[in-house]
Every structure is written in C-alpha cells, then in structure tokens.
Design a protein around this nucleic acid. Sequence first.
DNA 1: GCATACTGTTTGTATTACAAACTAGTTTGC
DNA 2: GCAAACTAGTTTGTAATACAAACAGTATGC
Lengths: 101, 101
Amino acid sequence: MTTNDLLEVHPALFDRVRLAIMAHLSVTKKPVDFNTLLAELELTRGNLSTHMKRLEEDGLVRIDKTFVDRKTRTTYACTARGKKEISQYLTVIEAVLRSSL
Amino acid sequence: MTTNDLLEVHPALFDRVRLAIMAHLSVTKKPVDFNTLLAELELTRGNLSTHMKRLEEDGLVRIDKTFVDRKTRTTYACTARGKKEISQYLTVIEAVLRSSL
DNA sequence: GCATACTGTTTGTATTACAAACTAGTTTGC
DNA sequence: GCAAACTAGTTTGTAATACAAACAGTATGC
C-alpha cells in the first residue's frame, strides 16, 4: 500500500471546485462557456475567473475568446493534458482507497 | 451528470495529506501511531499534528494517548464516520468521473 | 548538573480560495 | 445624445489554511 501515490495526482485537482470544473469539461467533451459553468457550479464570477486562470496556467484547460453579437464570449475546453490528469486522478484514488472497503 | 455531487464529499478529504492519512488508517484497519504516519507520509511533526487535530475535530479520526516505557504514545484510528466519508468520497468521485473516460 | 534525544503542540508566515470592487463595453430609456 | 442599467469577465483585498520553525515536557547519557 503506497499512500504516497497521491503525490502523482496534479495538485490543482485537490480542490472541489476545480475538480468539478474539470469533471464538467471532461464529461461534456466540448467547450463550455463562462456563464454555463457559472450556473452549473453556483460560484461568484470572480471565483470562477481565478479558478479558470489557474487551470489554464497549469495547462489543464484552454481558454478561447470570441465575439458573439458584439459581446465577448469566453469558452473553456479540456486539454489533452487535462484529460490525462483526470484519468490519473481517478486511477490513483481507486488504487489507494479500493482496498480499504 | 451532476458535478455538484462533489459537495457531498467531506471538505477535510479535499487535501492530499489528509486523504493519504485517512487512506492509511482506513486500509490498515488498526490504530497507527504518530511516528509511523510521520515516516510513511514524510511530513514535519507540526504539520502532521495539525492535520490530525483537524481530522479529530471533524470526527473522522479518534486520538488515543497512552504511556509506553514512561514515554507518551499517541495512536490514531479511523472512526465509523471516517470510514463512511471515505466510502462516500470514492463513490462520488467514481460517479462524477467515470463517464468522462 | 548539563546536554542530547524523543514526542508532540503552539506559533508565525506564506499560500490560496473567495467575494467585493472594478474595468470595458453594450443595450435601454428618455 | 446622454445616463442608467445590464453583460462579461478581471483585479484586488481579506479571511481561511497548510506548513515549518520554535517551543514545551519528559527521558536518557555522561
């Protein structure tokens, strides 16, 4: 049993909000916009904004900005790295906890 | 798909160190002492101490203090509540992430 | 007695999650 | 045309928290 396998999990995923964001992006395999995430996760705009910035800096998410009807529209998508880290997260968690049940 | 199911996971488990501690206590189904955890998890004593205090306050762990050879000996065990929360954690994570693979 | 080691706890500090305030632009009302 | 209100985010100030350094209490060696 090696509880230290948890060190292989990306640190950004050890936050319930960011994990929820990544889960959402990862499950719906297409880009999701700011307001959709906002409604889904029930956060303030400031909070969501900083979490997305962190996820982009860590390379887990790609941010895309366009204009729709003259208004800004920001969409987010899971990167290949992001998918890999989510997969790794699940694998490690299961390996570490399964034997305890 | 309800990413908000993550809100049902106990907040104390959203920390890699505390999850590693709970995994250890949960897998080895018997009490573990301070120094064993210290060696296993490679933390400073102060850090481990505060995490254990938090876990006890949240009712996930039971702390037991005795004397061995006139020296203090502190052991920790997973409570029923702790086992339940670990189980819940695994269930929710799998439910939320499984469909993304 | 004094120094060193063992077993933790308390404290100060650095990070970070969060919401309030702000920026930039658009639409609506008059 | 101008102001008020709305939309879409971002920046910044604050409160919470993870961490290690310093501390406290006891035991052991010389």
